[in-house]
Design a protein around this nucleic acid. Structure first.
Lengths: 242, 242
DNA sequence: TTGACTTATATGTCTAGACATATAATCGTA
DNA sequence: TACGATTATATGTCTAGACATATAAGTCAA
């Protein structure tokens, strides 16, 4: 009776523990400051030795996802460096992490057969149904970003019935659909009338545009364009290199 | 006979092992590709158990300083696994990779004692010499980006005599100074008179701004601000996730 | 109430083993 | 010589303990 008595060909145990915790952090289920279970609790939950749990937590600490304090426990860190956009695909979690009040507003939602433009945007060939969503995120009641999203229903059928009037599609997807790869394209534009009104900024003000495509294996899941006020928003990304 | 029988109040053993190896890598004593001692050799050298050595090496692997290969050993990594966004670390390489003709023009170079503003920008306290550089990169004779850079000479003394009229400072640094960490801040602005003229775009056109700070261990190496035409330049970053 | 002392506890580090697994190297064969 | 099978070996993961240490929390006296 050691580790791999279950049928599935899971990754190793400590990686599974790490991934479990990481997921809860990245989805915002365990927000910054949250105390994650003690090592001995995880030992009991996963039925392994303390060293295994310790290895998982140590790696999370090395990655700056959690902070460990003797006698107190381990706590989810505020993602101070990691770019919210580059690592966390959830704006709600991003705003919450900044300690600000998150606001969400669905502007538009439509279920339709993919148009040629939709297929082009998603990078798929076959026609199928898609959900098109426009919404707005705000922090402390100030517009934070507007989102324009397309979800491929052939990859994510459940999205057809999800209630995006209450939950932002990014958060919903993160909770319901595991992704394996994402590509971000960052550019700058000046606000046109529509953008200016949506973000409550002046026409001609600079905006950051982030286009993100997300896949699971080779299937496109979603394509989203996020528009941020460029002078009040910054993407910060910190890397280690050699 | 456990661990702390020596007089000095050293950090823990695995940290010492890790620091020893890290030092040899960062100083270039063990160049990229070099095979570092096998675990059992380090066990013998440090007189500890394999798990202790393994912990040190695992952390170095997690930090991407070394690569571990079963049966073969552990090897110093080449310093260019950059996370996509970092490809802009060398604009010359970026433009060349696009199959376009690279052009470089030194606008300004000055060696001076660090002003208060310089120290602030570099995040250092002590006064020392710096090199301030302004230059322009072009692709197929079209302005591609303007660069405004500060190099800390106390970290990189050689930069004082480097010929930046021929080689772009980014390329020079990449070849001469190993870095351990970099932080990028991306924002959007609209072009003012000066920027518009330098980039040959209209006043009021959107620009991407990338501020990058680079360290080796805790020493600041350089701070650079890059200004790109926002509508013609895009940053692309691709990630793997779960 | 406040400050000093004590205690309980979660993490930090370490050991001396074990078996798993990928793969470089070797050997044998067509 | 070329290729397929075998073997040796370094890393990957894990265990069931141990003692160290920082510190939150509780205790008690001024």
């Amino acid at each position: 009776m050691s580790l791999a008595t279950d049928g599935a060909d899971q990754p190793t145990l400590y990686k599974r523990i790490r991934a479990d915790i990481e997921k809860r952090i990245l989805t915002g289920e365990w927000p910054p400051g949250h105390r994650i279970p003690f090592e001995h609790e995880l030992v009991a939950r996963y039925g392994c030795s303390r060293m295994t749990v310790n290895k998982a937590l140590s790696e999370l600490a090395q990655a700056d996802l959690i902070e460990r304090r003797r006698r107190a426990g381990s706590f989810v860190r505020r993602p101070q460096h990691q770019s919210a956009v580059l690592k966390i695909a959830d704006i709600r979690a991003e705003i919450t992490a900044l300690g600000r009040a998150y606001g969400y507003e669905l502007i538009h939602r439509k279920l339709r057969m993919a148009t040629a433009a939709d297929r082009d945007r998603l990078g798929v060939k076959k026609a199928g149904k898609v959900v098109a969503i426009a919404c707005r995120h705000s922090a402390d009641n100030v517009p934070f970003a507007v989102e324009d999203r397309l979800i491929d229903l052939s990859s994510v059928p459940n999205a057809a019935t999800a209630d995006f009037s209450r939950e932002p599609p990014g958060s919903w997807l993160l909770h319901h659909v595991p992704w394996t790869e994402a590509e971000h394209t960052i550019s700058a534009i000046v606000a046109d009338d529509r953008a200016a009104q949506a973000l409550d900024i002046a026409v001609g003000a600079p905006c950051l545009v982030i286009d993100r495509y997300t896949w699971r294996s080779t299937r496109t899941i979603t394509a989203v364009r996020l528009l941020y006020p460029g002078d009040s928003h910054r993407l910060v990304a910190r890397f280690k290199g050699g």
